[in-house]
Write a protein that binds this DNA or RNA. Sequence first.
DNA 1: CTCTTATCCCGTCAAAATGA
DNA 2: TCATTTTGACGGGATAAGAG
Length: 245
Amino acid sequence: MVAAIAETDESAESEGVIDSHKRREILSRRPSYRKILNELSSDVPGVPKIEEERSEEEGTPPSIATMAVPTSIYQTSTGQYIAIAQGGTIQISNPGSDGVQGLQALTMTNSGAPPPGATIVQYAAQSADGTQQFFVPGSQVVVPAATGDMPTYQIRAPTAALPQGVVMAASPGSLHSPQQLAEEATRKRELRLMKNREAAKECRRRKKEYVKCLESRVAVLEVQNKKLIEELETLKDICSPKTDY
DNA sequence: CTCTTATCCCGTCAAAATGA
DNA sequence: TCATTTTGACGGGATAAGAG
């Protein structure tokens, strides 16, 4: 499914994109719903602001809750939690731990120079079997598992030797050949797509939250309106009682 | 049972918004 | 100003409901 979509989008770059661009030029972009809601909340007390928190049904693990706000949280088949933070930092925690001892902060190699002593994680665009993999120490990889409301990842042995596009611990400035540059570009693209995928999910979650908020606000205002109309009718009756002649 | 339609969700692109 | 994040728009797949 994913492959089919990607294939379609790639081929669309030739022809359909032009029409799409024309349409988009015509369509005017509406202001951000998040901005609207936050402005609303500053004017009207009681309207909650949209925050970076995850909804309760997604169940942020307790051991992660005290850490820096993660962008994405995955649970491995072994019960470990993997949190990908804003800066590309990956945190792995054991559910039984106290949240500090079980944590292993990892840094993705494309997120700048890792801090001294940091463990390197290699993100591979795609392995031979088409799955995305994170390479972690101990000759293991983290790969996506079954899909559902909450994405799950498994830690397992790599499906093959290093897939194309992965350069283990390449020192800065070592990419020279056109092939290496192309691989680097591909890797960056895959990373960008992955981040945007997660961002889109988060955006849709926030939008649902926003719509729910608006719906509840509509309900409250309708009740208020009804009460005011009733009050008005009552006052009318008091001020101008009907007279029978 | 098959076809059509509607709805939902997802991944992607591109542009606006935001932060450093 | 530039890099990153956010989000509207789009197209496609999956699924349910209704019509024939």
